[in-house]
Design a protein around this nucleic acid. Structure first.
Lengths: 339, 339
DNA sequence: CTGAAAGCGCTTACAG
DNA sequence: CTGAAAGCGCTTACAG
């Protein structure tokens, strides 16, 4: 921390602490000469005011926290990037934390952020989040809550999501239009909203195109890894279950699936067409290049911060505020794996 | 922030604020019955002590900051991940910031972190960092500085790096051993230490194997993108400069180079062999799969935090402390692009 | 074992 | 325009 304090400056210049504080904070009722002297000394000493002390009065830390399931992850690191960028522009600093997809950890992390008196908490829930007390607690503490992508339908707050159901519908329809009749769906957990919505979109697309929904073709994955994609596909092949398309909930699993298919001498896309989800760096550079749904992670991060700021400001000005849910559209990127 | 305070608890229980504070902080000189009552109430109310207020006494925020050039980046997000994980285990929270490879921004961000009274700053310098005053300032403020990967040789602090020169030597030697005689090198900025060391390794490998170093074969890239890799390669081709190998400073540029080569009907690896740097997710899944140097980003992050903690503790215990430089070894991963 | 008091570094309502 | 004073919520040395 800074070696200096308002008191130190005030003694150096023979003025009061109050005067120094006001000068530094741009109050108008200060003699401009005095003000200049103070500001000059502060600059010369490289004086940095103690933000913890000022918090005690202002009640604002200008600190926000974000909890995501994983950090080393193309989509989540894009979200983080979006939030950090927007936040920094407005003078906020961002604490980053990861839940490792564990609900228990998530609860603990929320408490840690609250104890740091962050002004807002941004969260992308774990796949297994099944209790909402600690989310409600955030709001009870007077801290702004913003949910991103992996949200809870029940907990009220600002939300930023994508059109999951529609995206899945579009992807599945694309496969159908290109001749697929037996489409596997690799989905996420049964309680994750994102996963539920994508499944519903998949199912609806089948129904709308007169294809019977067959639950045996849907697999719940607990990890979004290429390994799981590989093994799941391998399972289908060894069970001799017939299929001609795969809609996977993430690019990783799609890539694992394609590896397995190649190894078993299936041609992608001729024998089996594959669509992933995320549009990760390099998804376009694979052979075959991967069809996928492009998710605007960074923009979602930007928007999350915008909604946060809106809520903070409406509180400050005591104006009306109602929670918004911003829905970003994904884009189906058709590449070699499905066409 | 918490709706309650020590004062509130103390009034509820008819004890003093001091007693509540001691009970909650595990002091031994408290009647165990009293202690129990206090802890129970705190738990029931979900009481969270105000960390800003306690900072004013303890001088510890348990906050650290990290500045990297980019967040949405496989290597840097691995480093962030490693730091956040280690930090959280020891009760530290991590503020994440990105410099966008701008030295001016870097300076501002350092000041922001200092004003938050972080206990330590972790930094991976920009490619253009050419002034060191604000790094020295970190130490002057009594804040621990740890430099990671992109370091300054001059500024003293704990450092975590890889064996850049040796890595480049190994990669270049590998190309030579596999028959390459005219090896392009796509490097980073002229003042980045990482970039300098890798260049030196490249050059030394050539010399040790009786290949004349030709400056025309070395290109300074200012952005590590596939686009730059593509364009640079395209340039060599159109200038009809003969080459049979490329050692690129990042996987992105290597991938761009390969795309360009393919497009111009060069066979990789038969006509040109390529080695990248980073080992990114999916580098193994490309066609041809990419030879590269594997960098243990997460472990480097873990180690950085370890060095930070060591310095913090030695200060607390007033024991001797000297800066360490931990050098991680990369691993040459040979894949189709060079073999 | 308990509590009164000082003080960390700020901000701000108020007096002059 | 300037400054004395109170107070934010803690911790801790000290007295009893």
């Amino acid at each position: 921390m800074s070696k200096y304090s308002l008191k130190y400056l005030s003694q150096k210049l023979n003025v009061s602490v109050s005067t120094v504080s006001k000068a530094l904070n741009g109050y108008s009722d200060i003699n401009s000469k005095t003000k200049e002297r103070i500001i000059k000394l502060a600059k010369d000493l490289n004086f940095i005011p103690n933000s913890q002390a000022s918090f005690l009065r202002t009640r604002k830390t200008k600190l926000i926290g974000i909890i995501v399931p994983f950090i080393s992850h193309p989509f989540f690191s894009n979200i983080i990037n979006g939030i950090v960028t927007s936040a920094e522009k407005k003078g906020y600093l961002t604490i980053v934390l990861k839940s490792k997809d564990s609900c228990d950890r998530e609860k603990i992390l929320v408490e840690k952020l609250l104890s740091q008196n962050v002004d807002g908490i941004f969260i992308s829930l774990t796949q297994e989040t099944n209790r909402l007390d600690y989310l409600e607690n955030i709001k009870n503490e007077g801290v702004v809550l913003v949910q991103i992508d992996k949200i809870s339908k029940i907990v009220k707050s600002s939300k930023v999501v994508i059109n999951d159901q529609e995206s899945a519908y579009i992807a599945t329809k694309h496969l159908i239009k290109n001749g697929c009749k037996k489409i596997l769906h690799y989905r996420g957990s049964l309680i994750s909203q994102v996963s539920i919505d994508r499944f519903l979109g998949y199912k609806k697309a089948l129904e709308d195109h007169d294809i019977n929904y067959d639950p045996k073709l849907v697999v719940v994955l607990n990890k979004m890894t290429d390994k799981q994609g590989f093994e799941t596909t391998s399972n289908f092949i060894s069970k001799k279950i017939d299929f001609d398309g795969i809609f996977a909930i993430s690019d990783y699993t799609a890539v694992g699936a394609i590896e397995c298919l190649k190894k078993n001498n299936f041609n992608v896309p001729n024998d089996v067409k594959v669509v992933g989800f995320n549009n990760w760096p390099f998804s376009d550079k694979l052979s075959p290049s991967l069809s996928t749904l492009d998710q605007p992670g960074e923009l979602m991060g930007n928007m999350s911060f915008k909604l946060f700021l809106k809520e903070i400001r409406s509180r400050k000005n005591k104006t009306n505020f109602s929670f918004e849910k911003k829905i970003f559209k994904t884009k189906l990127v058709v590449r070699e794996s499905s066409f």
